[in-house]
């Protein structure tokens, strides 16, 4: 996007939420030399494949967890079926807690 027309820079900041820090931690842990389960370049390719519309709608760490998950599926570390079932289980658990 270097050089494309864009608006003023908003000097915005926020302290990261715990879930965002965990996404960051997953990336660091999985890309570490002793695991090498993904590279930052795979993560970036998967983020780029989101397309401009989704890219703008999602927050930074939403894009990251999307791309980490894509990479883990592409690498065969997790399956789509496992992921679907686990997300459902997490939602049910959280609903019961609420």
């Amino acid at each position: 996007m270097g050089g494309l027309p864009a608006g003023a820079v908003e000097p915005s900041e926020h302290d990261y939420a715990l879930w965002e820090k965990r996404v960051d931690a997953l990336m660091m842990l999985l890309s570490r030399k002793d695991r090498r389960l993904l590279t930052v370049d795979e993560l970036r390719r998967n983020i780029e494949s989101l397309g401009p519309e989704a890219y703008d709608e999602m927050t930074y760490y939403e894009r990251w967890i999307y791309a980490i998950t894509q990479t883990l599926i592409q690498r065969g570390v997790i399956t789509v079926d496992e992921l679907g079932r686990k997300i459902e289980a997490v939602k049910t658990r959280e609903a019961q807690r609420a």
Binding site: L38, T39, D41, E42, R44, R45, T71, Q74, R75
Partner: peptide, 8 residues
């Protein structure tokens, strides 16, 4: 080469 790393 990152172009290759991006495809594992």
């Amino acid at each position: 080469n990152p172009e290759e790393l991006a495809y594992a």
